[in-house]
Nucleic acid binder design. Structure first.
Lengths: 344, 344
DNA sequence: TTTATTTGCTTAAACGTTTACTTAAACTGT
DNA sequence: ACAGTTTAAGTAAACGTTTAAGCAAATAAA
């Protein structure tokens, strides 16, 4: 058990032990044709015996590639993103890559800062959901022009020509709204958050389309934009809106708005679904045990993350994938529960 | 705008442009005493102008340190871990470090594999929660002996002499149990998951202590061990237990067991809190809007992550921190809601 | 004035790999 | 037997930093 001293064992060590050159070690470990079968075996054996693990930084420096990707997302305490990471990780691990994680907290400045750092060659590729207040996309363009492939998921940047994995925001909002209309709602509010022009535009579009189909005139005041964090002020803000507009249906477009909406309704003594019916975009398993159980738009978070990673790694592996041609939409699912139960 | 060609600009480029040596560039950028003030400014200016970003791999190779840490956790789709990552990230970002994320999925084999990789010098330190089925800790010992500092949070490994950030599992389980006893429960089940001897031992200990104080004899059959994933089989398994034991109180020790427990009770037509009162260890904000609102043991996830990161970075920065002496316990909080409302 | 010291910079080696190029020996076919 | 090819190695440069050591000129101390 004493064969492996804590002194770093590197190729030089192995070369010395085996009395061959460093090049032989390197080639043997990468299974090069240059090296004889017997030598290869000897190298592999002693490498294992001495617990040799290659230095990734030397390798990355020389090869100009790092076997590392970056995951850049706005936040992590959200079931959509954590499930998406699970999907990403399922590929990253399998491909023996490493994943750096960066949280922008929806700040453009941090995002730009991160991209600046990444232009160093730190990563071979990027998987990202853009920050809500990113308007200027120069940082993304520059990284892409520097040759780092980028794949967007969920919160994509339409103006960058690369792969985008989205869910059908327009359609799922349309379905959700139609569902409320079918259940008799006539005055539906759309509760969104600041930022995310594309996604929110799509959801608002689907919402409006459904209204139009039911000959309901859309009112600007029925669309309310909260701040993107769960707190007391948000609840108060929403309460005010509900008290004023008295909607009979609410579509909450992000996860934490479910709690905000339920608490606001409770404080206003408005019963769900009798006084107001609620649908929320969320992936939380607790939706089923809420009071009442919440009708949700369930997004394919895991699959989106996985698909995004598959495209990126396919590209990195040199497969003939034209990232800019990949524009994939995975369907969300409306899961109907009691928060939109028919009442009358 | 044409000053920065996409050709990688490195120290050599800067040296050529400014007609000084590479060493001067390096030292100027690191604000060395060796370099004159005027030269420093010129270097910094042109570096900015040409969008120079240092190559992290060259730097890491030479300095034998990577400005990177590893976060190793069992899973990520769990509010405790995602909040803990938020806490960690708050320090990582501020210290200009980078964080690699690894998910063990509670598998010892993957964990050991990851540690093996990390012995390459890939990271300067590790923040981790150990996998549930990790019994053999040789991989952890070896990395530590190789000089990589490790800080545990939540799911610690008691046999490794290093910093451990825990929450008071014993006491919070004790409080939760006592709370149920005060509310009149006489037959309390503890629902746990497989693995995690230390944490579960502590929680079971607290549970037993409370029972003892109330002169209730502990029954082995009241402790049930589910599998650590949310699915239908788990619900069925728990239903069976509840049907057999007919507990009037349940303590669910991990987040996803809340949903499992609620659904099991619902299927058995057992009313919470009338027929059975429920407490769960969870950090989800939806606890407040469940049916009924769930009494929770709220763990200081963010603070635990943050504290763990603080210790690690303090150590890395050379502060006089003796990691092996740090054994910190942050209190959890019992948040009482309707799932344990007094009835009778 | 002479000797130390400081200032500001350069030289060159090192970190641990990978790889283009070279080389010597062994095999091939004629 | 000999030119040509294949096989199995080795040599050395390169990746982009950091840093110990050196050195000339300027400054300070005696």
């Amino acid at each position: 058990m004493a064969e492996a001293k804590s002194n770093k064992v590197n190729m030089k060590t192995l070369a010395k032990v085996l009395n061959v050159s460093i090049a032989t070690i390197s080639k043997a470990l990468r299974d090069s044709h240059d090296i004889g079968e017997e030598t290869k075996q000897r190298v592999i054996e002693t490498a294992k015996l001495l617990h040799y693990v290659p230095n990734p930084y030397a390798s990355s420096l020389r090869k100009r590639s790092s076997n590392t990707i970056a995951i850049i997302i706005p936040e992590i305490a959200d079931s959509f993103f954590s499930q998406a990471i699970n999907g990403i990780e399922s590929i990253v691990g399998q491909e023996k890559y490493h994943a750096l994680i960066y949280l922008t907290h929806d700040s453009y400045e941090r995002e730009a800062q991160m991209f600046n750092d990444l232009s160093s060659g730190r990563v071979d590729g990027v998987l990202m959901s853009v920050a809500s207040n990113t308007k200027d996309i120069k940082h993304i363009q520059e990284l892409q022009q520097a040759g780092v492939p980028i794949v967007f998921f969920d919160r994509v940047c339409e103006d960058i020509p690369t792969a985008k994995i989205k869910t059908d925001d327009f359609n799922s909002a349309y379905m959700a709204t139609k569902h409320l209309l079918e259940r008799g709602c006539k005055n539906i509010s759309l509760v969104t958050i600041e930022g995310y022009p594309f996604i929110l535009q799509a959801r608002e579009g689907g919402y409006k389309k459904a209204l139009a189909e039911y000959q309901i005139k859309h009112q600007e005041q029925n669309v309310i934009s909260c701040s993107n964090k769960y707190n007391q002020e948000n609840i108060a803000f929403l309460k005010e809106h509900i008290a004023k507009i008295k909607p009979d249906g609410i579509i909450a477009t992000v996860e934490h708005l479910a709690t905000t909406t339920y608490l606001a309704c409770e404080e206003l003594k408005m019963n769900i679904p009798n006084d107001v019916k609620v649908v929320c975009f969320t992936n939380q398993i607790t939706a089923a045990i809420l009071n009442p159980p919440l009708t949700t738009v369930l997004q394919p978070a895991y699959d989106m993350g996985r698909k995004a990673a598959e495209l990126l790694f396919g590209h990195l592996a040199g497969k003939p994938i034209q990232l800019e041609k990949e524009n994939i939409t995975l369907p969300s699912k409306l899961v109907v529960r009691d928060s939109t139960r028919a009442t009358d």
